[in-house]
Write a protein that binds this DNA or RNA. Structure first.
Length: 547
RNA sequence: GGCCCCGUGGUCAAGCGGCUAAGACACCGCCCUUUCACGGCGGAAACGGGAGUUCGAUUCUCCCCGGGGUCACCA
């Protein structure tokens, strides 16, 4: 077989050489140890929460080493392309603080010198390598139809053979030049297959940065390199792109482990230096039956990245949760360094777990509560506002109408050594703060069981006349204690417990009634502070309520 | 089914031949407390099973079991 003639037959227009490509995309000349990483999502219109993991790992590896973090769009599957998908990818990663140094933009190409960053735009590049493989006899056109492949597959299964295109089951492998020409003349479409030099039974060893040394079967399948539309499969594109983009570390999910032998073979056959691989375990989800499985976009709303944004989880909370799963010492570090940025954390591949974590919403909530609790009121105001603008425009309007008032109630219990941890997500706030607005204020909780309506009214009567708006926090509560005594209640719960017969109840019962008419609920942050924020006029108006 | 990955409390996990087997979340109890939210103290809770190597295995090896992944002109 004249391979040169074959390559000319299939790629007559390809004139560029590999050497020219290598020169066009030279070594980056970064400093020693700088890592070049990428994320390479497919524009399917859906961004999985799990995508955040390799993304954050890649981003950290690049940016903590003065390297390059780039975005490549893997749009080689024309059947799966969805309008607006790239915008979604861009906005999703931007929202979670991923800063790309290079890569795809919404329009064609992108920014950077190693593009284009859309695989669909790189066909001429792949074809240079395809032609070279053809010349070396390492690839061949395959004219098998889908039906023929299926029939062959079925036959192999019946014979209990490993299904696939190889050995005796690679009919197009040894087509002559004339046969190929005849097929082409007949207008048959073809794919380009690798002529794998691998043999069944041979083993290869390989080091993964997380999994360690792996021993796998060598690839002996004649995998498809170029699909009939001339666009490469993932495998071929991965080798060519990560080589030419000078990627040093490939971070991806462990589902790629099974095709790793093919990738290793391709890098070797193409004469490329292999990148380091970091295969990370999947995030799992507990099933109702007690088992585990991958978070699934069809069954689990929390599998979609947008879920967290809609729920109002703080960006930093989500990032920290992801980081804490990635490096379990992160939480200890955070406790020791409450004011540093996540970027200051010494992220380490060595600390990554080889096993898959179960998604833990409790943990996310806890971390998010901690983050929100540590924000200042102004930051909370702005983040809450932006969440409301997307999800609750009515409340957003209130926030904007009187930012000072909003900031005042958002300040309650904030700051100091032990800030309140009331909220895991911003979506909980409009409801919680509604009572600060007269038109939203309603009493939703019942009176305490031991307080009748008449008794509540008696307390309110007494309090209304005792209320002094100039009291400070201490004086305010002292006054309430005194009033309790006057009305036959113990000034301290302890006193009541020691001698229940002597009192109608204790000061807590009084504040329960006040809390109810002031906030509409039996539970609330510090009443004195609430009244300060409400202001004397609004407080008095609410205290005028009778049951 | 073949091949591959994984296996310490409910969850995430320290551990890397000798430990009363850390810590965090969740759970329970007590304390603090005008409610709640914090905070403090305490509790229950784990090395999947079996062989081997070794003076000694959570740790090393093998087998089994369990969970997961993958076997496309999808990534």
């Amino acid at each position: 077989m004249d391979y040169r003639a074959l390559s000319q037959l299939l790629f007559p227009h390809v004139t560029e050489t590999i050497a020219e490509l290598e020169a066009r995309f030279p070594e980056r000349g970064l400093k020693e140890g700088a890592k070049v990483t990428r994320i390479a999502p497919s524009p399917t219109g859906f961004v999985h929460f799990g995508n955040l993991f390799p993304a954050l790992v890649s981003e950290r590896l690049a940016h903590s080493s003065d390297g390059v973090f780039l975005l490549r769009i893997e749009d080689t599957d024309s059947k799966r392309k969805v309008d607006g998908a790239v915008e979604l990818i861009l906005s999703s990663f931007a929202y979670y603080g991923m800063r790309f140094d290079e890569g795809a933009l919404i329009d064609e190409g992108g920014f950077g010198n190693y593009g284009p960053y859309y695989q669909s735009l790189r066909a001429p590049i792949y074809h240079v390598f395809a032609k070279s493989l053809l010349e070396q006899g390492l690839a061949y056109p395959c004219f098998c139809t889908k039906e023929e492949l299926e029939a062959q597959h079925a036959k192999q299964e019946a014979l209990k053979l490993t299904p696939g295109y190889y050995g005796d089951y690679a009919p197009c492998r040894d087509l002559t030049l004339n046969e190929i020409r005849a097929n082409l003349d007949a207008g048959k479409s073809y794919v380009l297959r690798l002529r794998s030099p691998g043999v069944p039974g041979a083993r290869i060893r390989f080091d993964d940065l997380i999994k360690g040394t792996l021993e796998l079967d060598e690839n002996y399948m004649d995998a498809v390199l170029l699909k009939s539309d001339g666009i490469p499969t993932y495998h071929f594109a991965h080798a060519v792109d990560d080589h030419l983009m000078r990627v040093t570390h490939v971070v991806r999910g462990e589902e790629w482990l099974s095709t790793l032998p093919l990738h290793i073979q391709l890098f070797s056959l193409l004469g490329f230096k292999r990148p380091k691989y970091v295969h990370i375990a999947h995030l799992m989800k507990r099933t109702p039956e007690g088992g585990k499985r991958k978070l699934s976009k069809r069954q689990d709303p929390e599998a979609t990245l947008s879920f967290y944004r809609k729920a109002g989880y703080p960006v930093e909370g989500v990032r920290e949760y992801v980081m804490s799963v990635l490096n379990s010492n992160y939480e200890d570090w955070r406790r020791a360094n409450p004011d540093l940025k996540l970027e200051d954390f010494p992220f380490s591949i060595q600390k990554m777990s080889a096993s898959g974590a179960l998604f833990d919403l409790d943990k996310l909530d806890d971390i998010s509560k901690e983050r929100i609790a540590r924000m200042d009121a102004k930051s909370v105001y702005y983040e809450l506002l932006s969440w409301c603008e997307e999800n609750e425009p009515d409340f957003a309007a209130r926030l904007k109408a009187d930012p000072g008032y909003a900031e005042a109630y958002l300040s309650i219990g904030r700051g100091g050594e032990k800030p309140r941890k009331d909220f895991a997500k911003f979506s909980e706030m409009p409801q919680a703060f509604a009572f600060f607005y007269d038109d939203l204020f309603r009493i939703t909780d019942p009176l305490p069981e031991n307080i009748t309506a008449d008794e509540a009214n008696r307390i309110l009567d007494a309090y209304e006349s005792a209320y002094c708006e100039s009291d400070d926090a201490q004086a305010w509560f002292d006054r309430l204690r005194k009033l309790a005594l006057t009305l036959g209640y113990a000034a301290k719960p302890k006193d009541y417990q020691m001698d229940p017969a002597a009192y109608r109840g204790h000061v807590g019962d009084l504040s329960a009634v006040l809390r109810l008419v002031l906030t509409g609920r039996r539970n609330s942050p510090d009443l004195y502070q609430v009244m300060q924020v409400l202001g004397a006029a609004r407080s008095r108006a609410r205290l005028a309520k009778r049951f």
